[in-house]
Design a protein around this nucleic acid. Structure first.
Lengths: 270, 270
DNA sequence: TGTCGATAGTCGAGTGTTCGACAGACTGCT
DNA sequence: AGCAGTCTGTCGAACACTCGACTATCGACA
């Protein structure tokens, strides 16, 4: 099995297919990389490709007007970008943009649809993921309506932390404020509270997670439901920080996608 | 064609299938009626049946705890209840309950899934509806995060008005406050503003729409995107108040589902 | 080493919403 | 006609968040 094959299975949806069904898809998948700020899906423009990230984070941004926008969902290596293409649709009014640099695989939307018709395992896994995204959006509606900035910030940090390796998130308050749909100084204040409680450490443009447990408490129930649903329907969700093989079957153990960060997180590897 | 056949096509998804594909489904559909307060889908309980309403309104309620809940979506005769069943899933953490009495048709979830595999038209229409619901949830996240009670109330009234016949909605402020996720007196105040601007008339437990145009203005861009997506992907959306046949092909013109309201809205029928 | 742009922190005033509590008004029932 | 329960309207205080404006700080680069 080539290095590409290993890397493909870093995306948890592709991993969930298992070796046999992934094989079927494999020829269609082309490696890509994502840069922060890149727009993967533009509102009301045809979706030609679907992306399966193996690292990095993308945001689904709902917008009513350019000034009125808010994040409605987060996608990382557990998911895919271009969901509308699975739903017999060619485009969507929302946007999907890259928040954290990463890599992944691209497949032509019409090819993926064709394969879904042929392969029921693929069909099932991807539709289950749709269910998770739907629940994530609904939970975001709940959080936005009923939780304070502080709790929503804790929730957001947890959701991003689930999708990265290591504990460092490179986000400015400005960016956070856009995603949460609040004012920038509001984020500054909320950050201080979380920092004061030793949940995170914040430095200029960077945010380090110190205690997930405390953050989950701070999120006050706004975090966890879509994540649990993912685990129930698809499989293990978070980036595992304690083990090497990510809990993947031996045949699917993969080298790290970002070797430059490797020493920091897994000091004794390589 | 029997009266049941006419009634089935009152659901806009079934209507969108067209006579031929609806025929395929028809034997599986059993008539049901919904009463306000009924819970059609309970959190984390198996979804055995999917419902296609022909009248009435249901809410998709997102909840983190019994006290923390908010409406994340609205379903009427344009949609279906039990979406998770289409997504290779047996249950969902959210709730679906009846807000306005109505009628519709029930089909066993596994039968519907089987038919979706056989009939690509059915498959497409239903997945497109999933896309609309997803966008609705994302827009709700946006509205909850960035719009005032007043705008959200206007949005909510419009969404319900789209799904009923006539202009009267029987909702208490208490109920509205739960759906919008705000305090009850907040709804009272917002109602007064809309009433003062002659957008609605409010009496005890009842709310009459006077001007959709003004309401759409008051909603300030928070209304319309999922509705437009529905029309683009599936077909006409709103309950048409100006015509008799609802714009449906002659073969699908139907008698009203709720004969008791009939005279009020269609005075010369029957 | 100094400059400059980007990021973070702070302030007082104003607004929208909650909170707790209660008073009034409508409606169905007896 | 009277009562009970539900629904609506209102109050002052507290709070969360916004708004506009400004300052402080960091860090890259000259």
């Amino acid at each position: 099995m080539s290095t590409w094959e290993y890397l493909k299975a870093r995306n948890r949806l592709l991993q969930a297919l298992g070796p046999h069904d992934l094989d079927m898809l494999s020829g269609e998948l082309a490696p890509v990389s994502f840069k922060r700020g890149e727009v993967l899906i533009s509102p009301n423009e045809p979706i030609t490709d679907v992306y399966f990230p193996t690292s990095g984070i993308c945001s689904i941004v709902a917008l009513a007007s350019p000034a009125n926008r808010i994040e409605a969902g987060v996608v990382g290596r557990e998911g895919l970008v271009g969901l509308a293409a699975l739903l017999s649709t060619d485009c969507t009014p929302h946007q999907c943009l890259v928040q954290v640099d990463g890599e992944g695989f691209r497949i032509a939307a019409d090819r993926l649809r064709a394969l879904m018709r042929l392969n029921s395992r693929l069909h099932d896994v991807l539709l289950r993921y749709v269910q998770v995204v739907l629940i994530q959006a609904e939970q975001t509606a709940l959080a936005n309506g009923r939780f304070s900035i502080e709790r929503r910030l804790a929730r957001w940090i947890l959701m991003c932390h689930d999708r990265i390796e290591g504990d460092e998130l490179n986000f400015t308050h400005e960016l956070l404020s856009i995603m949460l749909g609040v004012r920038r100084p509001g984020v500054t204040v909320a950050t201080h509270v979380l920092e004061g409680a030793k949940m995170i450490k914040a430095t200029r443009g960077r945010l380090t997670v110190l205690s997930r447990e405390k953050l989950e408490e701070a999120a006050g129930g706004s975090y966890g439901i879509p994540e649990a649903e993912y685990e129930r329907l698809i499989g293990p969700f978070r980036t595992d920080r304690s083990e090497r093989g990510d809990g993947v079957a031996a045949a699917f153990r993969v080298p790290r996608a970002s070797p430059d960060l490797s020493r920091e997180i897994y000091p004794h590897v390589s």
